[in-house]
């Protein structure tokens, strides 16, 4: 984590997850895993967030919500799909209301597989997301420089 961003704030959104992955995401904040060591903060506000962490698949009802949350996040931003449900629908794939994984509506940068995804895997995913974030930040800075 030496070169990459030191202050990724994440926004956790629960799609149609079974809550298994959500518990694991929250476990990352506990003393055992303590993601705040890396400067990761769990903010509840899309306007302050850098990483959108989604658990569970997309259904017809939460599709507009996810899209709106994403649009409210300032650039640069990354999306991280946690759990097999968020990756491609998982066990709920064939349900009548499930559209599929998060990548059906948003550009996903990092996929964290697992059912439920283990905290170590989630932290690993966040670290990967931070690397992507750093790349996007450089690109964003360049674009902004060109505009100005």
């Amino acid at each position: 984590m030496a070169k990459v961003s030191k202050s990724p704030w994440m926004l956790h959104y629960d799609g149609s997850s079974c809550n298994g992955c959500d518990i694991e995401v929250l476990a990352c904040l506990t003393p055992v895993y303590d993601v705040e060591r890396f400067g990761v903060l769990n903010t509840g506000n899309p306007k302050h967030a850098d990483i959108l962490l989604i658990t569970g698949g997309i259904n017809t009802q939460n599709k507009p919500v996810v899209e709106q949350l994403y649009s409210q996040m300032p650039e640069p931003k990354v999306v991280c799909a946690v759990g097999i449900c968020a990756c491609n629908g998982g066990v709920f794939k064939d349900c009548y209301n499930i559209i599929g994984g998060v990548d059906k509506v948003l550009p996903v940068d990092v996929y964290v597989p697992g059912c439920a995804a283990r905290p170590n895997a989630i932290i690993d995913g966040v670290v990967k997301a931070v690397a992507v974030l750093e790349e996007k930040r450089k690109k964003y800075k360049k674009e902004r420089g060109e505009k100005a």
């Binding site: 961003s5 202050s7 303590d34 705040e36 060591r37 650039e75 964003y140």
Partner: peptide, 27 residues
């Protein structure tokens, strides 16, 4: 963090946060 039994972020974390915020888009 220490009171909660965690290790906690580095001492300079608030500065990293502000630097990050300055590099972000303003909506």
């Amino acid at each position: 963090a220490r009171m909660q039994g965690r290790i906690g972020p580095p001492l300079l974390q608030p500065f990293y946060d502000v630097k990050k915020l300055l590099n972000k888009e303003i909506l």
